[in-house]
Simulated assay, not measured.
Amino acid sequence: MVLLLVLLVASVVVTVAVAASFGPVLAVDRVVADGLHALALSHHGFVTAAQVWTDVFQPWTFRAILIFLALWLLARRRPWTAVWILATTALAGILDSGLKVLIGRDRPHWIDPVSHAVGGSFPSGHSLTSAMACAVLLRLAWPLVTRRWVWSVVAVAVPFITGFTRVFLGVHYVSDVIGGWLIAAALVAAMTLVDVRHQPNG
């Protein structure tokens, strides 16, 4: 419960700061964006690698994995877990789309862009969805796997790299990415609390 409250407060603070165009946040966003864009312009190989990563690890890749897993669990007669996965996935999508419309933040604009994206900037859908999916998959795999530290590292590394590519490619600000991570973490924490408290026996 404490972790959930911390994540909720953190995600709300970042969201409000972006919505209110809080000066220090905008300043950090601009400095990081300018620095990474300059790096991208001089390292075309990194841009190609980042573009491949962001194209592969896009939101619908993770959604497809979770939907397939939910259908498999339904076939294995585990409807509660399947519904929990689908509900978490759907809520993540609603939060992503809804906040993009509500906040209405423009994406970074460049005279010489290295990549392109459409829609609102906050939150980063790639970051939110990848963090949500990795957290869900890690939670479900936790009782079944050994060397849990390896799986934990992977579950953190994938969203981190995904978020970095979005800023590196100049299609998001760093606060968009951090906001996406925090919203995903708060969502999964809340849904885990629901699961723990209301999961049917058997």
Rank of each mutant, 00 (worst) to 15 (best):
T61L: 15
T89F: 08
P59M: 09
I111G: 02
W149G: 02
P24Y: 10
A184S: 13
S121V: 04
A38S: 12
S115E: 11
V153Q: 02
G125H: 07
V14T: 07
A186W: 01
T165G: 05
F160I: 14
T48M: 10
V167W: 05
S97Q: 15
R107G: 01
V25T: 11
Q51G: 11
A17T: 03
L140A: 01
T129E: 11
R166Y: 07
P200W: 10
W181E: 00
P113R: 08
F168K: 01
G179D: 06
H109V: 15
F57D: 03
K100Y: 09
L66Y: 07
L26R: 14
F57K: 08
L91N: 09
I183D: 01
F57M: 12
S152K: 01
V114D: 04
A155D: 05
L4K: 06
G125Y: 05
H43F: 01
S42G: 11
W80M: 10
A189Q: 05
A135E: 04
V174L: 15
A50V: 02
A155K: 04
L86M: 14
G23Q: 15
D176R: 06
V194F: 15
L8E: 02
L41P: 00
R166W: 07
I111A: 15
F122C: 07
F160S: 14
G23P: 00
I111R: 12
T165L: 08
W151T: 02
A117S: 13
W72Q: 12
V118C: 00
T88L: 10
W72L: 15
S175A: 12
T146E: 12
V188I: 11
M132N: 04
V188P: 04
D29R: 04
S115L: 06
T129V: 14
T81N: 10
D176F: 09
A133P: 01
L128A: 05
A49D: 11
D112C: 00
M191S: 06
R107H: 06
V167C: 04
V14D: 01
H43A: 09
L26D: 12
V9D: 01
T48N: 10
G125E: 06
S121E: 03
L144R: 15
V25M: 11
T88Y: 09
P113S: 05
H116I: 11
L39C: 02
L137P: 00
A117N: 03
A40K: 01
W80C: 08
R166T: 07
I67E: 03
L73G: 00
T129L: 05
L187H: 04
I65D: 03
T89H: 07
W110D: 00
R197A: 12
D34I: 09
S127E: 02
